[in-house]
Design a protein around this nucleic acid. Sequence first.
DNA 1: ACCGGTTAGTCAACCGGTTAAGCACCGGTA
DNA 2: TACCGGTGCTTAACCGGTTGACTAACCGGT
Lengths: 322, 322
Amino acid sequence: MTVSNVMNNRPVSESTRKQVLEAMRLLNYQPSAIARGLNRKPMDTLGIVLPHTYHSPTSHPYYAPVLDGIMAAAVVLHKDVTIYTGNLCSEDGVGFRRYRDGRADGLIMIGRAIPKSQVQSLIDVGLPIVTIGNYYESPEINTVGIDNGKSMAALVRHLADLGHERIAFLEGVDDEVDAGPRLGAFFDAVEAAGLRRDLAHAQFPGFTAPKIQQAVDVITAMPLSKRPTAVCAFNDELALATIEGLARAGIRVPEDISVTGFDDTPAAIAGNVTTMRQPMRKIGMRGAQILVDVLRGDVSGPICETFETEIVVRGTTGPVKA
Amino acid sequence: MTVSNVMNNRPVSESTRKQVLEAMRLLNYQPSAIARGLNRKPMDTLGIVLPHTYHSPTSHPYYAPVLDGIMAAAVVLHKDVTIYTGNLCSEDGVGFRRYRDGRADGLIMIGRAIPKSQVQSLIDVGLPIVTIGNYYESPEINTVGIDNGKSMAALVRHLADLGHERIAFLEGVDDEVDAGPRLGAFFDAVEAAGLRRDLAHAQFPGFTAPKIQQAVDVITAMPLSKRPTAVCAFNDELALATIEGLARAGIRVPEDISVTGFDDTPAAIAGNVTTMRQPMRKIGMRGAQILVDVLRGDVSGPICETFETEIVVRGTTGPVKA
DNA sequence: ACCGGTTAGTCAACCGGTTAAGCACCGGTA
DNA sequence: TACCGGTGCTTAACCGGTTGACTAACCGGT
């Protein structure tokens, strides 16, 4: 069709082009992105995959700024964004192939959505993928995030400088999902800071507030000589829950126990929590940019980028009690 | 194709069905939503239209919870969500027909995205539309929001009860866009509260912080006998900016001037601002539900629903100075 | 009048589903 | 045997674009 040629700026005589444009205007014509997509043309749409545990991503202190970054980049890159709402793992054996329904050119997966055992299924979708804040170390998957090793090292270093020798890590991730590198990074950081690894604790997995209370109870039940003097929580939310739990047990922060969070969310600012700031919006923007680059074929191998983090020292960490 | 019959639970013999399902499994088959959509079948996707002034909707104190509600409803309703990122009004004369590209079955427009003069263009898109927090009073457009009249009346009533007689309204909306009903509601509320309308002020449009400073300057320049003793801001963001501006001028809140916000965002809680709470998440959920109802043909006329609001009295309003 | 080359526009096929019509088969009824 | 209705599967057409092959027209040069 000549119309198609006009739309795609193909060589068409000026008179014909004018005729076509005039007809388009009269008919209020809008080409169907769907019909175009049927022929394997790009849809100019980025698909967003979220872990099914978060049904309020746009109010989440981590997901919201990341999404913001993605949206901001999408505006500049002239891409629309489709958020897939379906449960990730519900349909037995279906895997993730539903994302191959042709609506999105590529996928951005935020957070630790799926266990490593299902990564192959995700790769089988066949779409270019960028994961954000996750690290599957697969040649087919691009990743943007932070250097957990460096970040934990800085936090532990800060605590060590304050004299802390017994530090606990509150994992805070549902054990169904792979714990990821932050836990390992914690132990490495403990050693790097010259502390005895066997004095570190990390046996407190569990994302929900009640479980946090369990972890707090374990800590408070320990004799003072063995009790950790500092707690590194997986994120700010957990740190604040921990502080609350400790307060209920009559333990003061930071006088008795220091607590650190992660992410530097507004809650951490409000709660005056020492934490690790990561540029979530930038990470989201970069993720979208990488996906578009991959779609354009501008890049070859898998991309794995990390952004710098920055420790923010506030009022929940202090020198160890004499 | 028999496959299509199997997928749609049409009458197919059990043996054939099994064969098909087995083949689907072997081939890792995923039907193309695009090809299906080409035949005017629903895409099961809700389109979100945002005003181009907000490039960070998922961090916005109003847009984020509304989006959350939409997403939560979409999960339950088995719909995906596509956020259109393009500038709403950039392409001359194109109007909004780009939303008719077939990717979404209907549109949800959040906030005052477009001036009333362009509403017809929006209707011409031909898709079912739900606007949220906006009121075009068109038979083709469904709406969810709040009763601005009641809400403003409650705020003004509250101020009147505290003895305020001269109240200013800070419009706070870019004048390029229709001001909407909240301003009119303010004047009605002033009269309903038995106050003299001519003592009310509302000549301070402008959304940005610098403009707010202008408005504050106008107020502070007024002689005490004419100066408003209370200010109703369009939203919490503006209220807080106003409070800051007043503080710079050495005017105390609420001792010298009372200030009210709108929306009851986290910032209002943190700033201890008297404000009007609206159930943003519920509004978003209901908007999505209405759109789906319309798509199903379950409803006839245009739907226009309002949710109840609730005044939240905090520390920025107090009795008028003697 | 013939020729090679470029340009402009038309035609047919295709993408991958859905839909409607067609057809073979079968049991029941007249 | 003829007719009928229902079932199960196949075939053809269609949705609305894109793509590539093909035709038609135009051009200057011999």
